[in-house]
Amino acid sequence: MTTKHTDHLLISQVSIDFPTPQGPFRALDKVDLRIEKGEFVSIIGHSGCGKSTVLNIVAGLYQATEGGVILDGREVNEPGPERAVVFQNHSLLPWLTAYENVELAVKQVFKGKKSKAEMREWIEHNLTLVHMDHAMHKRPDEISGGMKQRVGIARALAMQPQVLLLDEPFGALDALTRAHLQDSMMEIQATLGNTVIMITHDVDEAVLLSDRIVMMSNGPAASVGDIVQVNLPRPRNRVAMAESVEYMRCRKAVLSFLYERHGRKTVSVSVEDEEVQPARDNIVTLKPSTAKAA
């Protein structure tokens, strides 16, 4: 949103050690990242590289061993609603309805700031934003996985966070539901202009949603390996995007980082490449049919 170059969120020289019986294990080493207000940043890397750890440190759920996180000039050292988290497996309270789940957050954040009627309006507004207004009074076990994740997003948005932290938010969903939620996320981002950090392992998702993609090197002692700037105009359309040169460039940059420069040491690079190649072909072959459908 703002073009003003301020350090909205600064992740500065963050390292973290986890204690193990064999002594401390360095999971992250000197992670450095500056994020501007309204920016959508994805963090991508192989599983186990510590990308979720970065998010947890920003959320305040983990304490960095060295370095720190500064949000709008204040150091982060405990969790708080100004850094709302959308967890991978929705983390809704199963005994509360969608409405009540959001209400718990709203009551906590806006206690004494909003009247009862205003709170109700705000809860309903946020559930409408994620297209969940039709199932507001259903419990998590009565709605689908995608719907649960929508409620999780509504709960996070309702806290009016300065930074929205998404921890592989669509990872557990099927491809179609994931695409729907990605579209919703872009829509919300366009409306609210939140600063977002999203952890993902899906290259297409990262390119589609992000302004910047932060690629992490493999652990132990993982760090920021490289950053790809995604210069695609918004609003973005996933079908039209498939033809875009910039889209292909970003995608290739991420793939080559993940599979060529930082391929998993346990898996041979050639096998990984084979997996990647057909996926790229798929997009090319799909193009004419999807264009017709649209």
Partner: peptide
């Protein structure tokens, strides 16, 4: 209690 729900509680500062 599920770690996730505990994290929710922490983020909300209940």
């Amino acid at each position: 209690i599920s770690k996730d729900l505990q994290n929710v509680s922490k983020v909300l500062r209940l």
